[in-house]
Design a protein around this nucleic acid. Structure first.
Length: 506
RNA sequence: GCGCCUCUAGCUCAACGGCAGAGCAACGGACUCUUAAUCCGCAGGUUCCCGGUUCGAAUCCGGGGGGGCGCACCA
């Protein structure tokens, strides 16, 4: 293995990407020529990098442990010093250094080391030691190639910065940018924690249709598709709400779904056409129980994912530590506007108040919508720390129970943090006739050209006629919650494969 | 949809009307304690695409494409 007298291969192609790949293929063939399988079927690993760091945190420099381990991971750095080399290997838990001495390596290990490239998956066996500089290392005797990286990795120091490539080739982003990986670790830890909480509260996780004859449960424009077998047009769901309440009618008293929703609307830093919401319904509860559950879920997610309650959001810090204040929307508006407003006020008055505060009323807006817009455009931007805003106009809450003694207001809350809505919930409307009436009203708006008005859903009304118990419902925007916990400001940074235009074909 | 910004070697970036360059990665070499290793050498380009202006275009202009940000719609 020491015939190093060959001149540089004279047919070396130009080191464009193709040539870099060809070079790595050549190395792979070199191994195969020597009887080394470049794609072995499996590997028995006995230790993870992080375990070793935990177990041997206090070793002196130049120490030996006598502990032999088998590691596997991706090569992220190689430092060659002639007969001594160092390599850094990253596995799912973290990174660890391999120390590779020519005098210790097996014949195969030496051959594998000769051809190893940044990005290759390797397995290594050796003794856990510390280097003379004190770095925990594996004094390697055996080395296996587990899978060849034919494509070169991004710059090990700068990583991958081009957003386009980060989103299109998320796998490369994840392996090259630790921060990106961290965001998704937070995401999935948070979701798992919320699932655990729901389970401990005896909610059943269910699945409802994504392909629906008629998209309901929210005010939004759906995507459409077509089912060939039935020759019918279908919508992709905009919310699971109506189906979940039908399950409560059916006797599943506590249900939840972590639902991917689809809305054919604008794309922005805060909006993705495809987004995830947790919706939960609890029989016998009301809007108060909904707020309690919402707060518990967010805190459980924050605790499990980060262990903190204080987060940076832009240039402000917010503290999630509860309990969160619960304030009536109409009271908050009175404080902000200097006068009391209510959906029963004359339309012209409400329009005047809107104009006065920079909200331009649109022609179709009723009094409830005007009040809601005052909230959305005037009140919401000023909210920083978590706040439950309670009591919304019925006009903009077609599925919520109206407030006792006030048919124009609904027992509904929104959770607001740093000027954004994070969750929404209410006492569910369970009077079939009233629901049918609300649907008629919104269906008229839809017929009048409002593409986002809620459609009448007869199957849902029929379900209510079998009896929906008093029920609390909530919906939490998972992506936005993750943005908060991970302290990133683009929703695409918390979605693994965000929607993009297709790549240009070569 | 509208406005602004952006696209140069595999990656990260220079050059801003005058020979398209550097660092990392690659390739050849030296090196048994490095950790962004170091040193010597070598190679690498459809400057996103099409067109125009110009003696000369990565650079200026027009059109197109990808992406980002802002506005609008929405959560």
């Amino acid at each position: 293995m020491t015939n190093e007298t060959d001149p540089p291969s004279e047919d070396a192609a130009a080191p464009t990407l193709d040539a870099l790949i060809a070079e790595r293929r050549r190395k792979r063939e070199t191994l195969a020529d020597q009887g080394i399988d470049p794609y072995p079927a499996r590997f028995d690993r006995t230790a993870l990098a992080a375990e070793l760091h935990d177990r041997h945190a206090d070793l002196e420099p130049d120490a030996r442990t006598g502990e032999r381990v088998r590691l596997a991971g991706r090569v992220t750095a190689v430092r060659r010093h002639g007969k001594l080399s160092f390599a850094t290997v990253a596995d799912t838990s973290g990174s660890i250094q391999l120390l590779l001495q020519a005098t210790s390596l097996s014949g195969q290990a030496a051959v594998v080391l000769e051809s190893v490239d940044l990005g290759d998956w390797i397995g290594a066996e050796g003794e856990v030691i510390t280097s003379r500089r004190g770095e925990l290392s594996v004094d390697t005797t055996e080395l296996w190639l587990l899978s060849k990286a034919l494509r070169p990795l991004p710059d090990k120091w700068h990583g991958l910065t081009e957003t386009d490539t980060r989103y299109r080739q998320r796998e490369v982003d994840l392996l090259a940018n630790p921060d990106s990986r961290r965001v998704f670790e937070i995401r999935f830890a948070a979701i798992a924690a919320m699932r655990r909480l729901m389970e401990s509260e005896h909610y059943v996780e269910v699945e409802t249709p994504i392909l629906q004859p008629q998209a309901g449960g929210a005010i939004a424009r759906p995507f459409f598709t077509h089912a060939n077998a039935l020759d019918i047009d279908l919508s992709l769901r905009i919310a699971p709400e109506l189906y979940l309440k039908r399950l409560v009618v059916g006797g599943f008293e506590r249900v939840f779904e972590i639902a991917r929703n689809f809305r054919n609307e604008g794309v922005s830093t805060r909006h993705s056409p495809e987004f995830t919401a947790l919706e939960a319904y609890r029989a016998l509860g009301d809007v108060t129980d909904g707020m309690e559950l919402t707060e518990a879920l967010v805190l459980a997610a924050a605790e499990a994912a980060t262990g903190r309650t204080v987060f940076a959001a832009g240039d402000v810090e917010i503290d999630l530590a509860g309990p969160w204040p619960r304030r009536q929307l109409l009271d908050l508006l009175e404080e902000r506007l200097g006068r009391r407003v209510h959906p029963t006020d004359p339309l012209e008055d409400l329009r005047a108040v809107c104009e006065e505060h920079g909200v331009t009323p649109l022609p179709g807006w009723g009094p409830g919508k005007l009040v809601f817009e005052l909230y959305d455009q005037v009140l919401l931007p000023g909210i920083v720390d978590p706040l439950f805003v309670v009591g919304f106009p019925v006009e903009v809450s077609p599925l919520a129970r109206h407030t006792a003694g006030d048919p124009t207001m609904a027992d509904r809350f929104e959770l607001c943090i740093v000027a954004k809505e994070f969750a929404n919930g209410y006492s569910e409307l369970n009077v079939p006739e009233e629901q049918a009436e609300r649907f008629e009203f919104s269906a008229a708006a839809k017929a009048g050209g409002d593409a986002e008005a809620h459609p009448a859903d007869q199957a849902f009304v029929r379900a209510l006629e079998y009896g929906l118990p008093p029920t609390a419902g909530i919906g939490i925007g998972i992506d936005r919650l993750i943005m908060l916990l991970a302290e990133v400001d683009a929703i695409r940074d918390v979605i693994l494969f965000p929607m993009l235009r297709p790549e240009a074909t070569n």
